[in-house]
Nucleic acid binder design. Structure first.
Lengths: 349, 349
DNA sequence: ATGAAAGCGCTAACAG
DNA sequence: CTGTTAGCGCTTTCAT
């Protein structure tokens, strides 16, 4: 049997409204009655029902998170950070992993709406359904549900993102400084486009020409990165392409590429330099340890939560969308052959 | 403004109960009125409020999941599977990552209670607070909230777990078959104890004596596995211990150990054979590729969901706890030096 | 400072 | 088959 406010009131010999008052602490209550009520609460181990409470107050103290794939380390860490931050502030988190399927994402939003979440953080999955997505955003707005997009710039939406352009520039610039001129690019989905832009930017800066046949792109549905990196590199090799370095859209792609290189008997970094992106756990553990671009995921996750909660607080639905861009950090390890030694214990963090 | 059932009723020119009926589909409604109502629903884009619904029906179509650390691949995959399975069945998932802190776990249960989840799946975090945990279980029982424990056998609780004993036996037996007699063991927290038991069991079977100084154990709070594996191995080496093989409580520990071995100039597998546990993604990617014990995480996650939902359906709170044990599979790769070659593409899965 | 009463949006008897 | 009514557990006026 569930204990309700009624039982507590009876136990304490007061009315339910008094109990409610001590529960919320807003209105003043006589010290003595407060004490009586508190004792009754403790004695009966009463836990106020959030559901009933929500019926009246606007908020559920619940927020929804949409990520493409929870089993990917990057999103797993992000989810963890978001969850922690939210928890600190008294919120619970619904998580939906969409596997990059639009129907899944839609279903998630519907469910979030029905469950009256106070806000939504989404890590842009499919980019291909702009129309649908737009209607979702409108719908959320009409329901006054604040949203923050993670890493995907969606028109009209507040956004927290890494500066992938800058990160890519740093990475490719490093390769160029090392003397590489023929640099292949194997890109992932969505945000990777900015990385490709960075790649092109460096080439422009140095008046180098981009060899388009050295570029392999994933689609928005690409999700098996290691495999994608492997097959892309395999293709590059089969096509007898000339290149002395490869910039990869993420670390898993880089690892896949390295496997293909290894199979072909091409040594990293002696014959081909390799650079990844994200700095996942495995990047420093892998052999050769991956030179990569580190995203400040934890900071970004926290920022997303803080922004969302702020929007909610201010009931701010129509102000110009904030764009928070986070700086990336080039982490130099072994896979590109530069001599700067990395902190060998970095993986202990 | 939120559209309620009232507006729909008005729009369709019927009473709210009729609308409710077509919503739930249980009672028969005249075809024509049904059509009118459905049109009104579509026209107004009405979304029934789960919260209000919950006030009356018992269920929230929501379940809670407690894991120690979402950013760990093992739990990330598990969470993903559970979420998917639940979603298929129309449930939403609250996730709380406790970082193995008891206060966090308690807070999670409280929150779940307040939010009236229909069930809870927990991946046993701290083992040290049996008393507290017990009271939680009692509390959940008194609220009729079914629970399923994952991988931790808690008295009175239904449980889905891997057969770690068997897995460990297979792993160590393999080492013994390879001729190893001096086998160190570096164990992780909680469930690893069963792995240690498996280790001992094999020694017993072969009338071999366990050298206790070759055993390093983690605590329930151990969470930085790579580091733990590294320092444990470092200690073993500094203590000048003799051993030709190491069985590790999980893959991350094995990788940490391999790093320490490498630093000491000891080659794997030529001088020391290494076996991990779990078969995380990195196990097959690492060099040398790790021989390890694969857990059927996906099957286990699904089983946990199915069991939980079944318990809920049957309102089954007092039957003898089910224990579902899943078989582990020894995956032989390079790190233990046996010649059987692994499927080199296993990482593409 | 406290109690009585009116809902929040919906479902579930109970009548018609 | 459909409308009326009574709540679910809580917060919030409005009296007292």
């Amino acid at each position: 049997m569930k204990i309700t406010i009624k039982e507590v009131a009876q136990e304490a010999g007061v009315s339910i409204s008094t109990v409610s008052r001590v529960l919320n602490g807003k209105n003043r209550v006589n010290k003595l009655t407060r004490k009586k009520v508190e004792e009754a609460i403790k004695k009966l181990d009463f836990q106020p029902d959030q559901i009933a409470r929500t019926m009246i107050m606007k908020e559920t103290k619940t927020i929804g998170l949409v990520v493409p794939q929870l089993s990917n380390e990057y999103w797993a860490i992000l989810s963890e950070v978001i969850q922690e931050r939210l928890w600190e502030k008294g919120y619970s988190l619904f998580i939906c992993s969409t596997d990059r399927k639009w129907e899944q994402e839609t279903a998630a939003y519907r469910s979030f709406l029905e469950r009256r979440v106070d806000g939504i953080i989404l890590h842009g999955a499919t980019q291909t359904c702009e129309g649908n997505r737009f209607s979702i955003i409108e719908q959320m707005k009409s329901h006054s549900i604040p949203m923050v997009s993670f890493d995907t710039r969606i028109p009209g939406l507040h956004c927290v993102a890494g500066d992938h352009l800058q990160g890519a520039i740093d990475a490719v610039e490093h390769l160029v400084q090392l003397g590489h001129k023929e640099i292949a690019y194997i890109g992932g989905p969505s945000v990777s486009h900015h990385r490709e832009l960075g790649y092109r930017n460096v080439f422009m800066q140095h008046h180098l020409e981009v060899d388009e046949s050295l570029i392999k792109r994933g689609t928005d549905q690409t999700i098996h990165f290691t495999k994608f990196g492997y097959t892309s590199m395999e293709a590059l090799i089969n096509e007898k392409k000339q290149f002395s370095a490869v910039f990869c859209g993420n670390d898993l792609i880089a690892i896949g590429a390295s496997k293909a290189l290894e199979k072909a008997g091409i040594r990293v970094p002696q014959e081909v330099a390799l650079v990844g992106f994200d700095d996942i756990n495995m990047a420093s553990l892998y052999k050769p340890a991956l030179t990569t671009v580190r995203q400040p995921i934890r900071d970004m996750g926290q920022a997303a939560v803080d922004l969302l909660l702020e929007l909610k607080q201010n009931n701010d639905l129509h102000s110009a969308p904030t764009k928070l861009l986070f700086e990336m950090e080039l982490v130099i390890r072994e896979s590109c052959g530069s001599k700067i030694s990395s902190n060998e214990h970095s993986w202990t963090r």
